[in-house]
């Protein structure tokens, strides 16, 4: 009997425990929710594609359209993208695939708790699982796009460097950042539904502020901005790794990774602190 887990629910319980003591509990909870996260991922995956004809192809359509538009604008002379080290379609599709890991992930995470609303108010479970499962959707989309990239690389006869094998590692900071922001925004979204719209707007806007579809400018306003935009180096760093086999700005990448980690840890902590309030507001 006594080995059974005792749960205590009381007001301000977490405040009484203090800001740091709780990490252990958070890790345990995360470990024990592996199964649930996987199930939620499978659930959302099946539900998402069961009713579509094109299925997972939808993960490819948006980046193809986007890159197509840019190629068209470039050729038509409306816009000057500048010189890229590899053929533009390869450059842009690779960048966009990495970007979308962040953008679709953030959108999915932001909506995850609201979408799980009926569940959240009817049963108690670690709500982190919903957010993480949402990111997993985005990771899956990324994997599908890798298939497309292989084809595009082959068409343009570009050979990725061996360091591409390190890409999964190089994407971890980006995913932590996505998850961190996702934790915060999913909570805020429960309180104020405006967040959904704001996130959609912001990801579109940020796409153009970040050197995803164009090479990093070396001077000017955008160059200055890129130094302060951790997304920039996280995306271009990962891309450089595939194309050149090394990162052009390793120290910047490292500091952006650290920032991401800190954002992730703080957001996770906040999420854990506040999640108990969400069921009342969903």
């Amino acid at each position: 009997m006594n080995n059974k887990q005792v749960k205590l629910y009381q007001p301000d319980a977490q405040l009484k425990m203090g800001w740091f003591v709780i990490w252990r509990e958070m890790f345990d909870e995360l470990i024990s929710s592996r199964e649930l996260i996987w199930r939620l991922f499978v659930r959302d995956f099946l539900a998402k594609y069961k009713q579509t004809v094109l299925g997972i192809l939808w993960a490819l359509i948006m980046p193809l359209l986007m890159v197509g538009t840019f190629i068209f604008l470039n050729r038509a002379g409306v816009m000057n993208i500048g010189k890229t080290d590899v053929p533009y379609p390869v450059f842009a599709l690779l960048g966009l695939s990495i970007w979308q890991l962040f953008a679709t992930g953030l959108t999915a995470c932001t909506n995850s708790i609201l979408q799980g609303g009926s569940m959240v108010v009817k049963i108690n479970f670690p709500k982190e699982s919903l957010v993480i499962a949402a990111l997993a959707q985005s990771i899956f989309g990324f994997l599908v796009r890798i298939g497309l990239l292989v084809v595009v690389f082959a068409i343009y006869k570009v050979i990725p460097s061996w360091s591409t094998l390190l890409l999964p590692l190089a994407l971890i900071p980006l995913m932590l950042l996505t998850l961190g922001l996702g934790f915060l925004l999913s909570l805020l979204n429960v309180l104020m539904r405006d967040i959904t719209y704001i996130v959609t707007l912001m990801t579109t806007f940020l796409l153009f502020l970040t050197p995803v579809l164009y090479p990093s400018p070396s001077s000017g306003f955008l160059a200055t901005l890129n130094i302060y935009n951790p997304l920039s180096v996280l995306v271009t760093g990962a891309r450089d790794l595939v194309i050149f086999g090394y990162m052009k700005e390793p120290s910047q990448f490292l500091s952006a990774s650290l920032i991401s980690l800190v954002i992730f840890l703080i957001s996770w902590r906040i999420f854990h602190l506040v999640e108990a309030r969400m069921a009342e507001r969903v």
Binding site: K4, V6, K7, Y9, K122, I123, A279, E280
Partner: peptide, 20 residues
């Protein structure tokens, strides 16, 4: 819902032991 921890109580406390 408070017994399941879906809602946190605003006063008092709930203690439960085991899987629900």
């Amino acid at each position: 819902k408070m017994l399941n921890g879906i809602f946190m109580p605003d006063k008092g406390k709930v203690e439960v032991r085991g899987r629900a």
